[in-house]
Every structure is written in C-alpha cells, then in structure tokens.
C-alpha cells in the first residue's frame, strides 16, 4: 500500500527561558494508506508536537517529511493551508468548534475554504453528519450539544473534505469513558470504510484499539510490535 506519511529524523526544539526542550528528537515514522495507527506516550512526550508537524500546522527544525510522497519542507504558508484543507482532517481534544455556528455550519466551513459550490456543500455536509449520526442536530449550536456530540461534529468536519488522513489528538480526553467508547467505535467504522487514521493518546487502553501502535517518549518514536 502507498505511503501517506514518511517522517525521517524529524527534530523540533522549543526554548523556554533559555532552556532547550527537545519535543521531537530524530523521530522517524511511516504511515500507509488505510492504516489505523495509535501513537501513545505520557504527557509532555511530544505527541502533540508530532501531530502538529504531521498535520502541517507547524514545520520541523530539521529532518524530512514526505506527505503523499512530496516533501513539504519548501512549501509556503499558503500551500500548507491548502494541504491542511484538502489532505488532513483534525480532531482535537477540546473539539474546537466555532461556538457561534451551528453544527452544519461548522462542518461546512472547510468546504467553503475549498471553494466548493453551495449545492455540493449542502450534499456533503448532510452526508458527513449522517455518517456521525447527527443529522437531527444539524441546526444546533455547540453549546446545545453534549461533549460526545460536539466531538462527533468535529469528526464530521474532519471527514467532509475526504482527507487522506484523519489526525486525532486525544479525541476522548475530554469525554467520559462511555462517550469515549462511542467515539472510538466511530473511528473503527471509519477505518473499516477505508480511512487512514492517526490517533494520539496517553491512554494505553485506547491506543490498543488501533491496528498498529507507536510509542513516543521524550520526543523519540518507537514502533511497538503487536
């Protein structure tokens, strides 16, 4: 299967008050089309930093990152935004929905930035909300929805552009275990229907549900044999 992501010797260093923190230390990672990868590690180990780089929200200090076979090193900010828009779907721990917009408007937003026609947008938004079983709540604002429902809206928003890659950073972190399970079941279904998913978590039990596990510790990435 085709490689979607290949990270080679990626480093990222933050300096806080003169002190250097190696958030990623020569990280290497390969993810193939259709995989469901769990990235697990304790808090502060560099998981979010990894996700930001994979998701093109940030760029590495050194090392190489190939997305769909293309190096993104020399991409302009504008091109990175375009990649985030078309190839990547984010799901965050804190949902990150726009509070003043209804569920369907939130889901529609990435399509607006893509310049998709209104009729096509309507169709695809309905489809994505159907996928996360929230069609009945399309007109609701985030504050009218439960945490689990909000996260499902976020998943629909990530799915609606049909991205190459779904990136979820602690998607169950703000949910109780039962709703967390529901979200995980959703991810399983999405995986089963062919989506490539990278799930980031500090919870070994959550990570175990992925078909492949990767450990990260102090910015170093290590494959876990299943």
């Amino acid at each position: 299967m085709a490689e979607i992501i290949r990270l080679t010797d990626v480093c990222k260093t933050y300096s806080i008050g003169g002190e250097e923190v190696r958030a990623l230390d020569h990280a290497c990672l390969t993810i193939r089309d259709g995989e469901f990868v769990g990235i697990v590690g304790p808090s502060g180990s560099g998981k979010s930093t990894l996700m930001n780089i994979v998701g093109c929200l940030d760029v590495a200090d050194s090392g190489e990152y190939l997305l769909d076979g293309q190096s993104i090193a020399n991409y302009s900010e504008r091109e990175l935004a375009r990649i985030r828009n078309r190839k990547i779907g984010f799901v965050f721990q804190s949902f990150n929905l726009l509070p003043k917009m209804s569920a369907e408007e939130n889901v529609e937003l990435p399509l607006i930035y893509q310049g998709v026609r209104a009729s096509e947008r309507r169709r695809r938004v309905a489809e994505a909300l159907e996928r996360v079983e929230l069609s009945a709540r399309a007109k609701h604002k985030p504050f009218e929805l439960s945490g689990g429902q909000q996260q499902r809206v976020a998943v629909a928003r990530a799915l609606v552009t049909r991205p190459s890659l779904l990136l979820a950073d602690e998607p169950t972190g703000n949910l109780d275990s039962k709703t967390g399970m529901e979200i995980m079941r959703l991810f399983h279904e999405l995986h089963a229907s062919g989506n490539t998913i990278v799930l980031i978590t500090h919870d070994e039990n959550v990570a175990r549900q992925a078909s492949r596990r990767v450990h990260i510790l102090d910015g170093r990435v290590r494959e876990v044999e299943a």
Binding site: E77, A81, R84, F92, R157
Partner: peptide, 16 residues
C-alpha cells in the same frame, strides 16, 4: 484568536 486558529487548522490561508 482561537477562532482564527481553528479556521487556519481546517484550511483557511492567510488570504482568507
């Protein structure tokens, strides 16, 4: 600021 961050994450460029 947060709204801007969210918009950028889902693909809004500088221009938008």
């Amino acid at each position: 600021t947060r709204e801007i961050g969210i918009r950028k994450a889902i693909g809004a460029g500088r221009g938008s």
